[in-house]
Design a protein around this nucleic acid. Structure first.
Lengths: 244, 244
DNA sequence: CGGTTCGTTGACTATTGTCAATGACTGTGG
DNA sequence: CCACAGTCATTGACAATAGTCAACGAACCG
């Protein structure tokens, strides 16, 4: 039904890192086979999360980072005034929870947007193993650095771009992340609500909804509830970058 | 003249990590003395940068991260349309350049806001040393994780807060970073221009200027060009957090 | 099925951006 | 040492983008 389903069972809990088709995304490219086994031995695979389930909560003691195996997860913080701010959407192959390292506590909560499976990587075991596998150490430095870069790009998006450009950019981002997994970059399902999108992009639900309508009217995309069909990728790219 | 001057020469290039009064900020707290010497031996200390000098440029090959020793540095990216986005301000003891690790290229440029000195830490030597000093490895993981958290807080600020709240938050941030270095948290000099502040906070120069005027009229701060005197810290904190 | 959440659309408001003018400060060169 | 050009900061008037409030229908859940 969903276009994001894998050929094999998407939430299969018995797949090792060596066999996982996502490994090229979440693991260092150039590790030896026996090293993959070592990594594999510290990874815990729990049973799938149901939509709405928490993977971890802000304030909890940090002990692991998580690689999404299937489904999708949103991360969010609660501001002092109690309202939630969506800080990210994580798709299969992406690693989350890196923000907890700095203060030994999670600063975000993580909630499944649909039925999802994750690989838990206990952080202290990972750092220990990193001392013997320079490639692994380097991989995590790179993961974290890219996360910094992503956040900076998001800051720029919020600083300098209009509502339409922000929404178009998010669609492009999701599109390319689907493509990286050999899925369609032009037809996909948004697992998050309009409110989540709005919070992530610093917009209200109403504005997000209006932008979807406008992009549809312009022939850029076709929207059917959460299903998005990109009709003209170049137009979408044009919508995402400021014209002035 | 500037309130940020150290008692000893602030740009002294001959101070080792062991003697540096900033070490508790930029180095792991619990390293043994001989280990500090090892770290010290890979750190390069160049001659001070003058105002406007580049420390590195976006696109250059990444090889080192930098700890600010004195002065202040701004980091910025150039958008595809060529306009600059300020991504951060770095004060003594703070480490910058971490975003370059992920793609082996700097994604930001770094420019001195005033006469400044930095410690250059060659990254490959650091990672190599990290394999023998778990504390050092952990320290860098923490530094990077905190950077992620900071960026997320900035995203939230831009998403949810008004112009006044953003400016007040920046002033509070600078205030507490000064205090951490035993400097006055209520009287300090902003080394960056109004345009830099605006770009960083996603506001125009005019709006920044108007907010400064308003905060002054309200008795929160006193503004004399770049010199800021916080008259009522609690009022400033109130101005920084959303009232609704 | 009924109640609740979610998404869309409209009318109006308000915060911030844009454009413009002015004054202060900075630095350079005659 | 002063004059001048250029940048920077401030302020005002006006415009525009996105937010607020409200109503409605559709989908989802128990």
């Amino acid at each position: 039904m969903s276009s994001a389903q894998h050929a094999t069972c998407p939430h299969n809990t018995a797949v090792s890192c060596g066999e996982c088709r996502l490994s090229s995304i979440c693991l260092p490219i150039s590790v030896h086979i026996d090293d993959i086994e070592k990594i594999d031995s510290i990874v815990k695979r729990g049973r799938p999360l149901q939509k709405g389930d928490y993977l971890f909560r802000a304030g909890e003691v940090f002990s692991s980072v998580y690689a999404v195996r299937s489904g999708s997860i949103k991360s969010l913080t609660l501001s002092d005034t109690g309202e939630e701010q969506i800080t990210g959407f994580f798709l299969p192959g992406e690693v989350m929870g890196l923000d907890g390292i700095g203060h030994s506590k999670h600063t975000n909560s993580a909630i499944a947007l649909e039925t999802s499976a994750v690989c838990e990587i206990p952080f202290s075991q990972m750092t220990e193993l990193s001392l013997k596998l320079p490639t692994l150490q380097n991989h995590f430095f790179q993961l974290m650095s890219r996360e910094i870069t992503h956040e900076q790009q998001l800051v720029t998006l919020l600083s300098k771009n209009t509502a339409e450009e922000r929404v178009a950019s998010l669609l492009l981002s999701i599109s390319s992340r689907h493509q990286r997994r050999q899925l369609s970059g032009t037809r996909f399902r948004l697992s998050m609500s309009r409110a989540d999108i709005g919070s992530f992009l610093g917009l209200t639900v109403e504005t997000v909804s209006r932008v979807f309508s406008r992009l549809q009217k312009l022939g850029v995309i076709e929207v059917d509830k959460k299903e998005i069909d990109v009709k003209d990728l170049n137009l979408l790219k044009a919508s995402a970058s400021s014209s002035h």
